[in-house]
Design a protein around this nucleic acid. Sequence first.
DNA 1: CGGCAACTGGCAGCTTGCTGCCACCCGCTC
DNA 2: GAGCGGGTGGCAGCAAGCTGCCAGTTGCCG
Lengths: 221, 221
Amino acid sequence: MSGNQQVITIHGEQELVARAGHLFEGARSEFVCAATDLKTWSRPTTRASMAGRVHRADGLVIRKLYTPVALADEEQRSHLLERVSVGARIRICRTGLLQHETIIIDRRVMILAGAEVAGDREFTVTTSPTLISGVYALFEATWEAATDLTAYLRSDPPQVDAEGRRVLRALGEGLTDEAAARRLGLSLRTYRRRVAELMRLLDSDSRFQAGVHAGEFGLIS
Amino acid sequence: MSGNQQVITIHGEQELVARAGHLFEGARSEFVCAATDLKTWSRPTTRASMAGRVHRADGLVIRKLYTPVALADEEQRSHLLERVSVGARIRICRTGLLQHETIIIDRRVMILAGAEVAGDREFTVTTSPTLISGVYALFEATWEAATDLTAYLRSDPPQVDAEGRRVLRALGEGLTDEAAARRLGLSLRTYRRRVAELMRLLDSDSRFQAGVHAGEFGLIS
DNA sequence: CGGCAACTGGCAGCTTGCTGCCACCCGCTC
DNA sequence: GAGCGGGTGGCAGCAAGCTGCCAGTTGCCG
């Protein structure tokens, strides 16, 4: 990796392991990544091969950002919790898909996973300070907006379907039940049944309390 | 801009204008940027020179993400509001510094502003799909976590005194007015007067809505 | 001290919210 | 087709919330 551009393209996970595997071992101060879930770019064997090398340096800070998709799978959830228990910091991002994995090592090297090309996923590896610092800034902004994994799990958001979301939005606009029901095309009785169900889901005894909780769970949008 | 890497480095703003100015004109569907403020990377003349070319295509979506720093300066604030009034979408990111400007045009071209080198700022321009899609995903996550400019400006938190805070806490616990009044040592009528005043401060027509807003303002704690 | 403004608290009348009840409808199963 | 479970919608009764009214209280000022 030399020359002015400091950017190389790698085809396939095997090549990634061969050419960039040492980068993971070399991580000294910080390893950060952002992805939808643990399966965003790698087969389990590749992931184990790469990730297993990361945990050897004292003082190494590991930060990983995933979306709630990672928690839908029990195996991934367990794995993430185990990672947390050995010191990794993991946050859940609710505001984006993070469909392209981004890894930054020691703020010196960055690996981006791209699309699959002819059956192999394409990776871009770069040491360009401009690229890395720009992406790192966005990573930081996203990280700060995200929720710690353990806090996220403690505040398991209730499952609210599309109609429930619509009801919450109407509630959030301050409409009377009658106006909201009319808008949503429901009878007043049915609307109120929906509201009662949401109150139960939000574990709330009053509408004010429900409003607070709905906001906390990010259910208003 | 050809070759495998699709990444070039540009030194200085004059060279940026000369070599990449046409990219701004070519923007057809979307122009997005993220930066601390309007002054993150360019002198006013360069900015005017570049930005002035962006607004000509019908259907072009312009999204800009800045930090609150951009609003501390009255001139910038006015400029941003004027941009909003002509259709640009602007959000304020409270969770990061965005110290390195990132621009993505039509999801085909990305420009990143780096450090100053020998008096000139270094820019990286790339058409690499992997790089762009990775950065775009992070941009999206940050954008979604950010607050709309007009909402941000409108959401000056209301001033709530100590008693108001106590009332909000009681409300947040789901108590009936009678129970809350008793706990706070107020008559029901006075308690309800307090609640009515809070509803006014929170600009809310229902208790649910007030709950949402109170949470948004961080008044429940 | 008297006057005034602001606030409190009880009461009443009204609206909104909550939920049970029941008839009816729909889809599914045997 | 009959039976059943789940859901809808109208209605009624009740609780909770909202606010005006008015008498009484408090604090401040001249």
